[in-house]
Amino acid sequence: MAEKIYYWIKLRMDFFKSPAVKLLRRMSGGDTYALIYLEMILLSLENNGFIYFTGIGKDMADEISLVLDEKKIDVEFLLSFLTNKKMIEFSDPNVFKFSEDVTEGLIGKEQSSAKRVRAWRKRQKALQSNSDVTTSNTELEKELDIEKEIDIDKDIKKETKKKVRHKHGHYGIVLLTDDQFEKLKNEFPNDWERWIERVDGYCQSTGKKYKDYLATIRNWSKKDKKKSNSFAGATDEKAYDDMPF
């Protein structure tokens, strides 16, 4: 079985802007003539740009109108127009061809097997594109997961850093986190060091420990302000509720 051959034409971007086509379309019924013109070019593809009179119709115009299912009067006018503009050339009354400048670069063909291969390649390209998108999405998800893990690690380190208490004072008994240490310096800008040493020395001499040394310093400071007038210089810790002077 002979392999089927497909033909096509490729219109130039300026096809409808060419002087001949523009003149043709300006005439009454011009759009119909332009359509028949394209149909005739398609009809000539199997014969390399030639159209032959086979005797089915009364004459060339009659046969073309029958094949294209167009009015004979329109085909007759178009054949006369194309001949005058040297866009077709009759070698005899029974055959004509489109001039080379009309069909040059417009006509193409391929066998059915080539068409199938082209369609297969197009499908493969689409599948590959989908695969690339899927792979890209998978890689993106992995990157997002890694970024989330990094952010979580950073948050954990930040929280850990906040909770770690560092030793302060001469004996290293006062324990403060970085956050607490900063708060202490902000609340007691002029004497934070004195408060640390005061609590540190007291704990060293008494063996006493506190859960929250910042809170202890705050409490001592409040009591110090309340009792400083009546107990200035006192050394009785009980009078100050464990706050030495």
Rank of each mutant, 00 (worst) to 15 (best):
F96I: 06
G169L: 06
T160D: 12
L23Y: 07
G169Q: 10
I9L: 07
Q124M: 12
D200T: 10
K183A: 15
F53R: 02
I5P: 00
K209E: 15
Q124N: 11
Y52N: 07
V75K: 06
N229T: 04
N130L: 13
L175V: 08
T138M: 08
E141A: 13
I56C: 08
F96M: 03
D241Y: 05
K22M: 00
K223H: 13
I5V: 10
K167H: 08
E193R: 12
K4E: 03
P19E: 07
F16T: 01
A239L: 11
K115C: 07
W192Y: 14
A114H: 07
R123C: 05
E104S: 06
E104C: 04
K183F: 14
F181E: 14
N190M: 09
K158D: 12
S80W: 09
S91D: 04
G233C: 05
K97E: 06
K22I: 02
T206C: 11
V95P: 06
K183Q: 15
T160V: 09
F77L: 12
K115Q: 08
I150R: 15
W120C: 12
L43D: 05
G108R: 05
E139V: 10
E147P: 00
L68I: 03
K227T: 10
G233L: 11
A126N: 06
K122P: 08
R198I: 08
I56R: 09
D132C: 09
L24P: 00
N190H: 05
S228Y: 07
G29H: 04
L45F: 00
E39I: 01
F50A: 08
D69N: 11
I146P: 01
V67Q: 06
